[in-house]
Amino acid sequence: MSSTKSYFAKPKFRPLQLMAYILLILGSVVMLIPFAWLLRSSLMDNSQIFIFPPQWVPDPFRWSNFSESLTYAPFATYFMNTMTLELFTLSGVLITSSLAAYSFARLRWKGRDTIFGILLTTLMMPYAVTLIPTFILWRELGAINTYFPLTVPAWLGGGAFNIFLLRQFFLSLPKELDEAAYIDGAKPFTILWRIVLPLSKPALIVVAIFTFIDVWNDFLGPLIYLNSDTKFTLALGLASFKGLMTSQWGYLMAASTTVVAPIIALFFVAQRYFIEGISLTGIKG
Score class of each variant (00 low, 15 high):
residue 6 S to F: 08
residue 6 S to Y: 05
residue 6 S to D: 14
residue 7 Y to Q: 13
residue 7 Y to N: 13
residue 9 A to D: 15
residue 10 K to Y: 10
residue 11 P to C: 07
residue 14 R to A: 09
residue 15 P to C: 05
residue 15 P to N: 07
residue 15 P to L: 15
residue 16 L to M: 08
residue 16 L to S: 10
residue 18 L to N: 09
residue 19 M to F: 11
residue 20 A to M: 10
residue 20 A to Q: 09
residue 21 Y to N: 13
residue 22 I to F: 07
residue 23 L to N: 08
residue 23 L to Q: 05
residue 23 L to E: 00
residue 25 I to F: 13
residue 26 L to T: 09
residue 27 G to F: 05
residue 29 V to E: 01
residue 30 V to N: 01
residue 30 V to H: 03
residue 30 V to P: 01
residue 31 M to W: 04
residue 31 M to Q: 05
residue 31 M to K: 04
residue 32 L to F: 07
residue 34 P to L: 06
residue 34 P to Y: 04
residue 34 P to G: 06
residue 34 P to D: 09
residue 35 F to W: 01
residue 36 A to M: 13
residue 36 A to I: 14
residue 36 A to G: 13
residue 39 L to S: 02
residue 41 S to D: 06
residue 42 S to W: 01
residue 45 D to I: 09
residue 45 D to R: 15
residue 46 N to P: 05
residue 47 S to G: 04
residue 50 F to Q: 11
residue 51 I to C: 02
residue 52 F to H: 03
residue 53 P to W: 05
residue 53 P to M: 08
residue 53 P to R: 03
residue 53 P to V: 02
residue 55 Q to R: 14
residue 57 V to A: 12
residue 58 P to C: 05
residue 59 D to K: 11
residue 61 F to E: 05
residue 62 R to S: 01
residue 62 R to W: 05
residue 64 S to Q: 13
residue 65 N to H: 04
residue 65 N to I: 10
residue 66 F to Y: 15
residue 66 F to P: 08
residue 68 E to V: 12
residue 68 E to G: 09
residue 68 E to S: 15
residue 74 P to D: 10
residue 74 P to I: 06
residue 74 P to Q: 07
residue 76 A to C: 01
residue 78 Y to R: 13
residue 79 F to A: 11
residue 80 M to N: 00
residue 80 M to D: 02
residue 81 N to G: 11
